[in-house]
């Protein structure tokens, strides 16, 4: 039986920038153990929402509950139990992958030997086995792999992921998907944004689509794709995209 306390509960969440709402009255419930896709066009408010969930930016109004605890009141306790893969790099360029993972593990309270052991195993798993290579020398895909490995090191209950597959090659993406599905099978919750709708379609059991700061469609994947529509068809329809380029005669 599913845990009655949802993994994420947002009530009328708003974030204003200079009077303009980047996130406008967002209310959302993500049950525990679900693989939740949070979709939207560029600038819709996805990253802003994730940044509010992680405590990086405060909301202008509304409430956030993660794993049954209010944010920011129980900020530290929440952070101990979430794993984050942000859109921007959270990596320290001047550390090696091994050093960074060990650092992250210790920040989450792991003892040094445990952090070292897990870091080594994760690096091997993600095929980042050049021990003396600095993160500054990593490719974009390798950086994402390290970020993903860092989000796993403390075995979090909730993953917040902003475009985790961006720049990752097919082998790496497959590995990451397998790991995430396995985490969900073991009871973790994943809240993910991605522009690769095929991936979302295959992985997620529920989806919310946000546009101009507001949720425009939400529900289980199967309900959303009624009939023969793909997720892309639904997405394009609800965010109101059109073939605007046809208006440019010269193009």
């Amino acid at each position: 039986m599913a845990d009655p306390v949802p993994a994420i509960q947002l009530e009328n969440l708003r974030k204003l920038y200079g009077g303009k709402a980047a996130v406008d009255g967002l209310s959302l419930t993500v049950p525990r153990g679900s693989f939740f896709g949070f979709l939207g066009p560029n600038g819709a408010g996805k990253s802003t929402t994730i940044r509010m969930l992680t405590g990086l930016i405060p909301p202008s109004s509304g409430s956030i509950q993660l794993l049954g605890m209010p944010m920011p009141q129980q900020e530290i306790e929440i952070k101990k139990r979430i794993g984050l893969v942000p859109d921007e790099s959270l990596l320290f360029d001047r550390l090696t992958g091994m050093e960074f993972l060990e650092f992250v593990g210790r920040m989450y309270g792991l003892a040094r030997p445990v952090a070292q052991e897990r870091a080594g195993e994760l690096l091997e798993l993600f095929q980042l086995t050049e021990p003396r290579k600095l993160i500054a020398e990593y490719s974009k895909g390798m950086r994402k792999r390290v970020a993903m490995a860092a989000s796993l090191i403390h075995r979090p209950e909730l993953f917040l992921m902003d475009e985790p597959f961006e720049g990752v090659d097919a082998v790496g993406a497959r590995l990451m998907k397998d790991i995430l599905l396995d985490q969900v099978r073991h009871g973790a919750t994943i809240f993910l944004t991605s522009h690769v709708l095929e991936v979302v379609e295959r992985l997620c059991d529920s989806v919310a689509i946000i546009n101009e700061g507001k949720i425009v469609r939400e529900g289980p994947m199967q309900e959303l794709r009624a009939g023969s529509e793909t997720l892309e068809d639904v997405f394009v329809r609800v965010v109101g995209a059109e073939r605007a380029f046809e208006r440019l005669d010269w193009l």
């Binding site: 992680t54 405590g55 990086l56 530290i76 306790e77 952070k79 101990k80 984050l84 942000p86 921007e88 959270l90 320290f92 992250v104 920040m107 989450y108 309270g109």
Partner: peptide
């Protein structure tokens, strides 16, 4: 961001 997103 690490210093604001980790439990420290």
């Amino acid at each position: 961001q690490v210093y604001f997103s980790m439990p420290v």
